[in-house]
């Protein structure tokens, strides 16, 4: 536990050990353990309100877990604040669920934000890099000077993706990347996610409840249920996992152990 070994090449890119988080009496994360290798794409699936977002926020340092360890590149990150946290987050890009674009800034400044504010790149160079990123996510250059409110949901997601990859992070998080998009646009975004992370060689951690998206962008899939990861395995095995909870979720059935347990609890 002590003496994080940052030089260990075999250390997983991201290692979570026994991460716990509760809000009052509500236990959201109940001992999460997960290793994600460099260059791997991990998808965490689970129903709404099972704590998927809380998990991501703990890794990003937006929330502080009650206990447990989160290592990035073999170095402990729980409890880091200020500059030390910024240094870790500089390696991480994040696509937010609602894109979370800054609506007071034009599209290109949104994309270049991390470069201008975080790394003091000149505005000129940052704009050039932003243009490249917009190309990469398939947006025309004239979009660059529009404001986020003038864009459709799908375009906002693309801009969010461009912003997430602009600083060339080696870890990228995707929070429900396809929520609120039509199936075709969702698939376009999935393709972009696969393409851009591959091009960066980045490690990806996504959370979603969209199975089409999960199987497309994930190498491995983990299922979060009642604060624990009840199943972790290769993405192609998720449909015959042999776990009744996972089965119910991935096939989207109304009847099964998850609903039964919820009813038992309510009654």
């Amino acid at each position: 536990m002590n003496g994080p070994n940052a030089s260990d090449p075999d250390a997983p890119k991201l290692r979570l050990r026994d991460v716990r988080k509760r809000f009052g009496a509500n236990v959201v994360l109940d001992g999460i353990g997960l290793d994600i290798a460099a260059g791997e794409s991990m998808v965490v699936i689970g129903g709404s309100g099972t704590g998927k977002s809380v998990l991501l926020k703990c890794v990003l340092g937006l929330l502080r877990p009650d206990s447990g360890s989160i290592e990035v590149d073999g170095a402990e990150t729980v409890g880091l604040t200020g500059r030390a946290r910024d240094r870790v987050n500089a390696h991480i890009g994040m696509l937010f669920q609602g894109a979370a674009l800054f609506d007071s800034l034009p599209v290109w400044e949104n994309v270049a934000f991390g470069l201008i504010q975080g790394r003091q790149t000149s505005r000129f160079a940052a704009r050039a890099r932003a243009m490249d990123c917009l190309d990469q996510v398939g947006l025309r250059r004239r979009v660059a000077d529009l404001y986020p409110a003038e864009l459709s949901g799908g375009m906002q997601k693309r801009v969010g993706l461009a912003r997430a990859i602009a600083a060339q992070p080696d870890i990228v998080f995707f929070d429900e990347p396809t929520t609120g998009l039509d199936p075709i646009m969702a698939d376009v975004i999935n393709d972009l996610i696969v393409a851009t992370t591959k091009e960066l060689g980045a490690t990806a951690l996504s959370i979603t409840h969209d199975m089409a998206s999960a199987t497309k962008i994930g190498d491995r899939i983990a299922m979060l249920y009642k604060g624990r990861l009840i199943w972790v395995g290769a993405a192609k095995e998720v449909f015959d996992s042999g776990n009744a909870h996972v089965d119910q979720f991935v096939h989207g059935r109304a009847d099964g152990p998850i609903t039964e347990e919820a009813e038992a609890q309510a009654g």
């Binding site: 926020k57 674009l101 600083a167």
Partner: peptide, 17 residues
């Protein structure tokens, strides 16, 4: 509004306090 649309979280992830 920035808080509820996660823009403040986005600031932190972009190394901006």
């Amino acid at each position: 509004t920035m808080r509820v649309t996660e823009q403040i979280d986005a600031l932190s992830t972009l190394s901006t306090n």
